[in-house]
Design a binder for these strands. Structure first.
Lengths: 223, 223
DNA sequence: TCCTTAGGCTTACGATGTAAGTACTGTACA
DNA sequence: TGTACAGTACTTACATCGTAAGCCTAAGGA
């Protein structure tokens, strides 16, 4: 009796990839705080402990999730020169990190990169070297660009608003409810800039990116 | 009997500040993962639930800790011009975030800034405005600089090595144990740059910072 | 004097990660 | 054909976590 019943219900076995993808989906819709082994198992129709056949533990799961995000970032193709390649790759990276807001918070705690992450970094370095950057200059460019991308993603993720209406709501609350004169420049920025129609913080990304890319071009002396 | 015993043992009551400082100290030495209400209570010689007389919950505790870190960042003084002021403030911010490696990871999840945080941001904006930056240009400068600072701190915090010896160890492990030809540029960078004597990733900070500051100066047309 | 309040303490609950052990299945080999 | 084994899932159990609820005592104002 028990064997027959079990046999009837049996599905195709899970694999690591399905587990990671389900974890990413769960974190996307409910936040990283809602991602527990039990809930992830539930989403996959499986008990929590069964997941341990495919990931070594929660740490390994998180590492794998970060690697999934990196795998979504387009690799730079050096054909059109390093500058457009880096530009497009930065935009793709920000988009991936904005799609998965939890990812940037994981990067601080997780420090064992997966294959997609390594491939990504290797491709970026290769693109810069191929364009004639010295080793030192490559390291500098890599450091500024990645710091900027991650930092921007971090700020975007920690903004208390995503949509334009939320922005207005938050900025108004802020301007209205604080001790009026305590933070004059902050309130002036809120009123005179953030609350202007059409404002969206994400627009800042490419402005700063181009500033940095131009500066790198000048510093490298590379056309 | 009980009253006498309690009276004899009684200490000066806690306050929010002591709780926050102890939490920061605990996180500094054992990592943010080791910070639980029970362990924090233990460090203060108090039961976990007593902490709830001084913080509203763990979220409030974390918010307060982030604010403590911001309070350690030196405010910009505009006397010598915006550029040295921004430079020194960026260096001070990175130092604070490096002293408290857990802080950058909290910024993603916590989104209600404390008074020190607001004061800091207000001072930065004020410095730029006083130097003649337009509102838009102020917003741009603010966004690039903070993104860079936070992103750099994030990368620094997620590096698997802090000391020079650890760097060598990790880089050697990395170069030696990976499928040799899979990530050629990454291994080349490790061997030809990271493993060179005197290398320290933190040195990159000021290089990128000056790149950005120069670019801002040019963009703003401000001497 | 009594009453309020502040700041501790105890107990208890549900959720979490995971160690340990069990049961079933399909495959490899005798 | 039978048998051993490896893979995958399940069950149970435990320590730890945040925190709700309620109690006790000392200090201070009425």
């Amino acid at each position: 009796m028990p064997s027959a019943e079990h046999a009837a219900v049996r599905r195709a076995p899970l694999n690591r990839d399905q587990v990671l993808r389900a974890a990413v989906a769960l974190a996307d819709e409910s936040g990283i705080g809602a991602l527990s082994m039990r809930k992830l198992g539930q989403a996959l129709g499986v008990e929590a402990m069964s997941l341990y056949n495919h990931v070594a533990g929660k740490g390994d799961l998180l590492d794998g999730m970060v690697d999934v995000v990196f795998s979504e970032i387009g690799l730079p193709s050096g054909d059109a020169g390093w500058k457009p390649a880096m530009r497009q790759r930065a935009i793709s990276a920000r988009a991936a990190l904005a799609r998965h807001r939890w990812a940037i918070g994981l990067m601080e705690s997780r420090s064992s990169p997966g294959p997609a992450t390594l491939r990504h970094h290797d491709a970026v370095l290769g693109c810069l070297r191929a364009a004639g950057f010295s080793i030192e200059m490559t390291a500098h460019a890599y450091s500024v660009l990645d710091s900027y991308i991650y930092g921007f993603a971090l700020q975007e993720a920690s903004l208390p608003f995503g949509t334009a209406e939320e922005t207005v709501q938050v900025a108004q609350d802020f301007a209205g409810q604080l001790p009026a004169g305590d933070y004059p420049h902050l309130t002036a920025l809120a009123v005179g800039h953030v609350l202007q129609p059409g404002y969206h913080y994400g627009n800042e990304f490419e402005i700063g990116l181009d500033l940095i890319l131009d500066a790198l071009e000048r510093a490298a002396g590379t056309p």
